[in-house]
Structures are given as structure tokens and as C-alpha cells.
Design a protein around this nucleic acid. Structure first.
Lengths: 142, 142
DNA sequence: CATTTACATACTTATTTAGTAGGTTGGTAG
DNA sequence: CTACCAACCTACTAAATAAGTATGTAAATG
């Protein structure tokens, strides 16, 4: 598993916000209820999105969150690196990993790099808007 | 991280065996030394490959392991599912995960399925032989 | 029978995951 | 001004996973 609940929930919150972007602020309490997720847990996740300017939060009555970006301009990759920190498929590619002495001769490293690239490419190619337009019923398992 | 040391070490062991497949049995002690990996840890990993017929082990003096398959016929995916059990990018896709009640309406699920498919496709497309032929120096980071 | 090597089981230590608990800060309505 | 609401912060916890170690047993060879 590369992507934990943190990243998945973050995307669901953003989609929920995108689906009802009237300009009003939507309290996390509502989103947690709709998405059937722990409010307390979401309250730990969403500030990560807030700090990076993906959403803006307003305190107090009538407050809540509002999408601060165009869903078409926000890729899943962008969201996931905020919450997961890193999506490296192997620990040797994690940012901050101490450089491996065998890397120059490592026959497997190129595969991990290519896998990493493919994962990043795909997740960068999918935006929140793409998911909004998705009708899950259109997809069937092959 | 989807792929732990278990899977990565398994591949390195298989490559080591493939590089010197004279028909002789090669003791894990030698491979551990060459690859600079813990012998004891490898002794826990390699039986997984042995049970599935990727390698054959022979006890006693002159014993060790020998590749039992054609490196060109063995994909990395095949090796990794043996050692990792599962390479699902999200827990909802892990085999044995309890089916999610929201899955029919879940707008994110198709993305995870497609990501899963791309990871599997790539890892199925790379064989041990491909890695043998690899000269790591040919690859540069972009 | 002694040595060598594969194979098995149980433990350990650190980290990560998926939250909970309990508060503080800032803004709104009455 | 005060009650309320909602964002935000910090610390904690329980369970699982990762990455090994330790200590054996089983089988083959010389």
C-alpha cells in the first residue's frame, strides 16, 4: 500500500467540496457525516491542504472550508504528496533516504525509478475535475 | 512504499543466481556475502521462492540454490506477489479486504484500480532477463 | 558421524497507520 | 459581552507492519 487513508480521505474531502462549490464555507462536520469519516481524523488531515492553499478555512459560525483552487488544475499527485509526504514505491527512492552505495551497480534500481515515474505520471495526469466528471457506474471490472 | 526489502532482496537473489547459472547449486551464504545482505533474513525469504518452484534448494555439502525457471519467463510481478503477498496501492484493493459499501458510488475507486493495473502491467512486463541485460550505467536520472 | 546447507519457529525493535482525547484560537450571532 | 461554533493544535494509543535475530531441526555428503 502506497496510499494510506490520509491521502484517500483528503481527496474525498476535496471532491466533496468541489461538488458543492457555491462559495459558501462548508463545515467539516457536514463532510465527515456525508463521507462517513471520523471528524476528528479529518480535522488532522485537512490543515495540510489548508496550509498549502488548496482549501481555505474560516473559523466560527458560518465557517468551514472552501476550495481555493480550480479542480481542473489540481492533480491527485499534488494532494497525495501533501498528505503522504512521499509516494516512493521502494524505500531507496524515498526522499531523505541515505544514498545507497550499491546504486551505481544496482540492476534493480532502474526498475524502481521507472515504476516511480509511471506512478507519478499517472497521478499527475488525473485532476479533481476528472473525478468529478467520473460516473463510477461507467467503470466495470475487467 | 509498496515493495519492502523482502521483495527487493528476493529479486536480487534471483538475479545473483541467474548471473551464474552453471547448473551448480549456490549456497545462500555466498549470495548473502556478495549482495551484502543478512544470511538469516534471506533464509526466511528464499523458501517462498523455493515452494513456488522458482528455485530449487538442495541440502548438505555442495548444496544450495539453483534457478528452476527461465529468467526470460519470470516477471518481477511474479516474484513480488510471492514475497509481498499483495501490491495493492490502497487497502481497499488488497485481496481479502472487506468489500466497501461505498464502492458503487466511490469516485476515487476507478483511479486506484487504474493505478493498480498500471503497476501490475509494468511489473509483469519486466523479466529477470531484462534486468540481467541491464547495464545500470546506461540509465541516468532525468 | 561430523559437517554443511536448507528450512522452520519464535522472538524483538522500530516505525507506521489509523485513529482518539482534550484542548486553544478565532470568528459570528444574539 | 458572551455563548456558540468551527478551525486548528498537541499528545496519546492500539494495532499492524517492517526488518531483522536467535535458535533451532532436517536432510544430504564425505
Amino acid at each position: 500500500m502506497i496510499i494510506s487513508t490520509k491521502g484517500r480521505y483528503a481527496i474525498r474531502v476535496l471532491l466533496d467540496l468541489a461538488e458543492r462549490c457555491s462559495g459558501d464555507y462548508i463545515p467539516m462536520r457536514d463532510i465527515a457525516a456525508r463521507q462517513e469519516l471520523s471528524l476528528k481524523y479529518l480535522e488532522r488531515i485537512v490543515p495540510l491542504l489548508s496550509k498549502s492553499g488548496l482549501v481555505e478555512g474560516v473559523h466560527g459560525k458560518g465557517g468551514g472550508y472552501r476550495l481555493a483552487i480550480d479542480p481542473g488544475e489540481c492533480s491527485l499527485w499534488q494532494v497525495l504528496i501533501l498528505t503522504e509526504g512521499d509516494l516512493a514505491p521502494v524505500s531507496c527512492l524515498e526522499c531523505g533516504a541515505k544514498p545507497c552505495e550499491r546504486s551505481a551497480a544496482c540492476k534493480t534500481l532502474p526498475v524502481w525509478k521507472e515504476l516511480d515515474r509511471r506512478i507519478r505520471d499517472y497521478l499527475q495526469s488525473v485532476t479533481l475535475r476528472d473525478l468529478l466528471e467520473t460516473n463510477p457506474a461507467d467503470h466495470y471490472v475487467i
